[in-house]
Design a binder for these strands. Structure first.
Lengths: 122, 122
DNA sequence: TCCTCATTTCAACGATTGATGAGATATTGA
DNA sequence: TCAATATCTCATCAATCGTTGAAATGAGGA
């Protein structure tokens, strides 16, 4: 199910900024355990204030989520949000045009290790 | 092959604006024949000046392309650019994480009419 | 050539964005 | 309770963005 347009606009806006794109990458790589806000900031070379600003932006956009752990706030990638954005891009924005979706399907199959998941041939 | 990061940032920025997102939709629906600049502007309710501004932005981002036809300039969706962006999102940004790619693969399979294209089981 | 249509370019403006540093808030441990 | 740590919030400021209307460009038809 594709995400709502408003949320998709926010998500695109969130990913259109270099610092935030790097943050998403770092958090995706970190996996479900996530990283503390400070660690994310350090990973992308942002001040604590700037890191907080951008992480809040990403959270508002539904691309990451946070939880408190002791003194730290741990951020982690929101996989639903990310895959929802991919789905939006293919379905809603690109209207399911085979010219867009077919190459995307090939990419998906190639990049997410077909062995992990059956092809889901609908 | 994923697009370059700089271009992806531009593309995300281009899609983060309502008028431009609607323009892309209109052009994807219009298909390879495209629409004249004026028609795109009318479709999304933008002045000629504003339409020109946003179409130029989309073209810079590699999401649409233009050609002249008589007095009109015809814009059309750049399917390579769009599918490249989907690929970037899955591969580069999301690092090929199955949590992101698997749902995306299902979406791709479901939305682009599997009958049109073999599953490309790589 | 002159006129008209379609589009782009330009300058001005208000609104939004991102960076910075200071200060506030929340949690832990002594 | 007090001090230390981790993070967030706030105010400020420069830069970028999007809109508007007027003027410039470019192509086609009389």
């Amino acid at each position: 199910m594709p995400m709502e347009e408003k949320q998709a606009l926010d998500a695109f806006g969130a990913l259109s900024q270099e610092t935030r794109l790097q943050m998403v990458r770092a958090l995706v790589i970190a996996g479900p355990d996530g990283l503390a806000a400070g660690a994310v900031g350090e990973a992308v070379g942002a001040s604590s204030s700037s890191a907080s600003f951008h992480l809040a932006h990403l959270e508002r956009a539904g691309l990451v989520q946070s939880r408190r752990a002791a003194r730290s706030i741990i951020y982690s990638a929101n996989y639903d949000g990310l895959s929802g954005l991919v789905a939006f891009l293919m379905q809603d924005c690109c209207q399911g045009r085979p010219e867009v979706c077919a190459p995307a399907a090939i990419t998906a199959a190639a990049c997410c290790t077909p062995a992990t998941k059956e092809p889901a041939h609908v």
